[in-house]
Simulated assay, not measured.
Amino acid sequence: MSEEFFHYADLHTSPEPPLLARLNRETHVQTLMPRMLSGHAQGRLLSMLSHMVRPRRVLELGTFTGYAALCLAEGLADGGELHTIEFNPELESRIRRYVAGAGLTGRLHLHIGRAADIVPTLTETWDLVFIDADKINNDTYYELVLPQVRAGGFVLIDNVLWGGKVVDSYPVKPSDKDTHAVRAFNDKVQADLRVENVFLPLRDGLLLVRKL
């Protein structure tokens, strides 16, 4: 779709809360890869999904500047908590500043390090998981978290369109390991009898998975 249609969709989506609008702007001005931010439309979808699920325990892999985490936290049940894992320690101070600004200190737990190392140390049962980390390891993360997700719980995976490179007609070089990994992961989930799934072509693609 053209930018005109995306703009129309934004105009007919509830606006960003002021704190998130500031974080959105700050991320675009002060970081090298602002496109990694979930952004307005996807952020409102994450918030709405969280409100629908009313999770007590949420896990996010790939915090970046914290935008998606704050959106997911909007729908937490009373007493609910969110754990988010970020590899880059340089982002920690900004994330914690916005967590405090949202009044979520004590409920939103930031872990700095490799998700593959940290996830096995967490003993929670997850109602909702959002995977938005390095795409080549989507399958690793999926297999790590799925046993920890309750029956009927949800896993969301971002960037499953991967800039449109996942379609069969797109010429992919053998050296493009990320694209091959995303394609293989999407095919795996489609065939996974442990879950049911819906592929949403929103932004760069969002895969919604429900554990059976």
Rank of each mutant, 00 (worst) to 15 (best):
122 L>Q: 08
173 K>P: 03
93 S>F: 02
178 D>V: 12
56 R>M: 00
198 V>Y: 04
44 R>G: 02
128 L>Q: 09
84 T>M: 07
122 L>R: 14
142 Y>K: 12
14 S>D: 11
71 C>W: 05
92 E>R: 15
148 Q>W: 00
11 L>F: 03
210 R>H: 06
108 L>Y: 01
121 T>F: 00
115 A>F: 00
53 V>H: 11
197 N>H: 11
21 A>W: 01
91 L>E: 01
88 N>K: 10
186 N>P: 04
29 V>Q: 15
96 R>T: 06
118 I>A: 06
159 N>D: 15
58 V>P: 09
35 R>Q: 13
142 Y>T: 05
52 M>A: 15
17 P>E: 12
140 T>R: 15
83 H>Y: 02
79 G>N: 08
144 L>M: 13
156 L>V: 09
24 N>K: 13
77 A>T: 09
155 V>M: 08
75 G>N: 14
186 N>T: 12
194 R>G: 02
4 E>N: 14
156 L>E: 05
57 R>C: 01
161 L>Y: 02
3 E>W: 08
194 R>Y: 05
37 L>D: 00
60 E>I: 13
142 Y>V: 02
209 V>P: 12
199 F>C: 11
85 I>Y: 01
102 A>D: 10
122 L>I: 06
155 V>R: 15
33 M>T: 15
111 H>G: 00
182 V>G: 11
179 T>I: 03
112 I>R: 08
166 V>K: 12
100 A>V: 08
135 K>N: 05
182 V>A: 08
123 T>L: 04
152 G>W: 04
3 E>V: 08
43 G>D: 11
135 K>T: 04
196 E>Q: 14
184 A>P: 01
5 F>T: 08
49 L>E: 05
201 P>S: 06
175 S>A: 12
123 T>A: 11
81 E>S: 13
43 G>L: 06
59 L>H: 10
120 P>V: 01
109 H>G: 09
28 H>L: 05
109 H>M: 05
